[in-house]
Simulated assay, not measured.
Amino acid sequence: MGDWVMRKVSLATKNSTEGTLGPMWEGSYEVTKVCHRDAYQLRDANGKTLPHPWNADYLKYYHK
């Protein structure tokens, strides 16, 4: 908890106008809660909590 991460852009979150040259990662998000072994609740830099937990496979550590 307290670490900052980037979230992988998926088909559901990808902007369709950017095509294949769009960014692969978005964010920076703060880990606020460990929900399961590999699932984390995230909060963006504005303080808004994301609606569901994210699996660690779709996150990478962000160096501030």
Results as ranks from 00 to 15, higher is better:
Met1His: 12
Met1Gln: 08
Gly2Met: 12
Asp3Gly: 11
Trp4Ile: 06
Trp4Met: 08
Met6Pro: 00
Met6Gln: 13
Met6Glu: 12
Lys8Ser: 00
Val9His: 05
Val9Ser: 04
Ser10Glu: 02
Ser10Lys: 02
Ser10Leu: 03
Ser10Met: 09
Leu11Pro: 03
Leu11Met: 09
Ala12His: 13
Thr13Gly: 02
Thr13His: 03
Thr13Trp: 06
Lys14Val: 01
Lys14Gln: 14
Asn15Ala: 10
Asn15Phe: 01
Asn15Asp: 13
Asn15Pro: 00
Ser16Tyr: 13
Ser16Ile: 15
Ser16Ala: 14
Ser16Lys: 12
Thr17Ser: 12
Thr17Met: 02
Gly19Glu: 05
Leu21Val: 13
Gly22Arg: 03
Pro23Tyr: 03
Met24Cys: 06
Met24Asp: 15
Met24Lys: 15
Met24Trp: 15
Trp25Leu: 00
Trp25Asp: 02
Gly27Asn: 01
Gly27Glu: 10
Gly27Met: 02
Gly27Thr: 00
Gly27Ala: 09
Ser28Lys: 06
Ser28Leu: 00
Ser28Asn: 01
Ser28Gln: 11
Ser28Gly: 07
Tyr29Phe: 15
Glu30Ile: 05
Glu30Gly: 08
Glu30Trp: 13
Glu30Met: 11
Glu30His: 00
Val31Thr: 06
Val31Trp: 00
Val31Pro: 08
Thr32Ser: 06
Thr32Leu: 10
Thr32Met: 08
Lys33Phe: 03
Lys33His: 09
Lys33Met: 08
Val34Gln: 15
Cys35Asn: 02
Cys35Ala: 06
Cys35Leu: 02
His36Ser: 12
Arg37Glu: 09
Arg37Phe: 10
Asp38Phe: 09
Ala39Leu: 09
Ala39Arg: 14
Tyr40Gly: 12
Tyr40Lys: 14
Tyr40Ile: 11
Gln41Arg: 10
Gln41Cys: 04
Leu42Arg: 03
Leu42Glu: 04
Leu42Phe: 10
Arg43Gly: 01
Arg43Tyr: 04
Arg43Gln: 08
Arg43Val: 02
Asp44Lys: 10
Ala45His: 10
Asn46Asp: 07
Asn46Cys: 01
Asn46His: 08
Asn46Ile: 01
Asn46Ala: 08
Gly47Ile: 04
Gly47Ser: 06
Gly47Tyr: 10
Gly47Pro: 06
Lys48Ser: 12
Lys48Ile: 05
Lys48Gln: 11
Thr49Trp: 11
Leu50Tyr: 08
Pro51His: 09
Pro51Thr: 13
Pro51Val: 04
His52Thr: 03
Pro53Gly: 05
Asn55Ser: 08
Asn55Lys: 03
Ala56Gly: 13
Asp57Trp: 15
Asp57Ile: 14
Asp57Glu: 15
Asp57Asn: 14
Tyr58Phe: 15
Tyr58Gln: 04
Leu59Cys: 07
Lys60Glu: 06
Lys60Trp: 12
His63Met: 01
His63Lys: 09
His63Thr: 03
His63Pro: 01
Lys64Arg: 12
